[in-house]
Amino acid sequence: MDTSIKLATIVKGMKWHTEKSLPFLNKNTGAVIYTQRPFLLDAKGEEFVGDLLDWQLREMELAYDIVERPEKYAEIPALDWPELRSEFCKAQLEDIRPSLMAAADSQETFDIVLARQGLTDVWERYVDEKAEIAALVFCEEHGLNNKTS
């Protein structure tokens, strides 16, 4: 494949992956596009969205393109946030670890504890490093050329 994929683009898709909004990499252009789960399910015939507005029609067309041309797209996986929080907590100093571990189940509480401990920047770098590794694996699994910037 001639298209070089920016790792940062894939990392962003991983970070913005939600239950309702799914990121896909267009393998031809290297762009990340998002579609909503209900439109994708409708395109697969698993759900019916109903009457659509203009923006929803465009969304539906994208969902049909993803379903009908799977060789063109690759779904970008979500980061496993609970696992990342758990691994990060285990890697911290003994005196900080208990308060982080207690907060690891809730992203909001975790963020508060990180801020109080002055670890927000450390956490963000940790997530970026893990996400970049996951993006490299994603590129390898899909036979994509990647570039770091």
Results as ranks from 00 to 15, higher is better:
61 E>A: 15
130 K>L: 10
58 R>Q: 14
90 K>V: 12
121 D>E: 14
58 R>M: 13
107 Q>H: 06
124 E>W: 00
114 L>F: 02
117 Q>D: 02
120 T>D: 01
95 D>S: 07
96 I>T: 04
101 M>H: 09
98 P>N: 13
86 S>P: 00
123 W>D: 12
77 P>T: 08
110 F>G: 10
80 D>T: 05
59 E>Q: 14
105 D>G: 15
119 L>Q: 03
79 L>A: 08
73 Y>A: 08
77 P>S: 10
94 E>S: 06
88 F>K: 08
63 A>M: 09
77 P>D: 10
59 E>P: 05
79 L>K: 02
116 R>G: 03
103 A>E: 10
58 R>A: 15
100 L>N: 13
95 D>Y: 02
59 E>H: 12
66 I>N: 04
61 E>R: 08
75 E>Y: 00
59 E>F: 04
103 A>R: 08
83 E>Q: 11
88 F>A: 11
58 R>I: 11
77 P>F: 06
56 Q>W: 02
99 S>H: 10
122 V>L: 07
116 R>E: 04
133 I>K: 05
98 P>W: 08
90 K>D: 14
67 V>W: 00
103 A>G: 14
99 S>G: 09
78 A>L: 00
119 L>H: 01
63 A>T: 08
88 F>H: 09
77 P>I: 09
64 Y>K: 14
83 E>I: 00
73 Y>R: 02
126 Y>H: 08
109 T>N: 12
101 M>W: 08
67 V>Q: 05
87 E>D: 14
82 P>E: 04
91 A>E: 07
79 L>V: 06
96 I>Q: 04
95 D>E: 09
64 Y>M: 14
71 E>I: 00
100 L>H: 12
127 V>T: 08
87 E>P: 01
72 K>Y: 02
97 R>Y: 08
93 L>C: 03
125 R>V: 09
113 V>Y: 03
89 C>M: 11
82 P>N: 07
95 D>Q: 03
102 A>E: 15
104 A>I: 07
117 Q>I: 00
100 L>A: 15
70 P>K: 07
114 L>K: 00
77 P>E: 10
133 I>D: 04
109 T>R: 11
66 I>F: 02
101 M>I: 15
71 E>H: 04
80 D>M: 06
65 D>W: 00
57 L>R: 13
99 S>K: 12
82 P>Q: 04
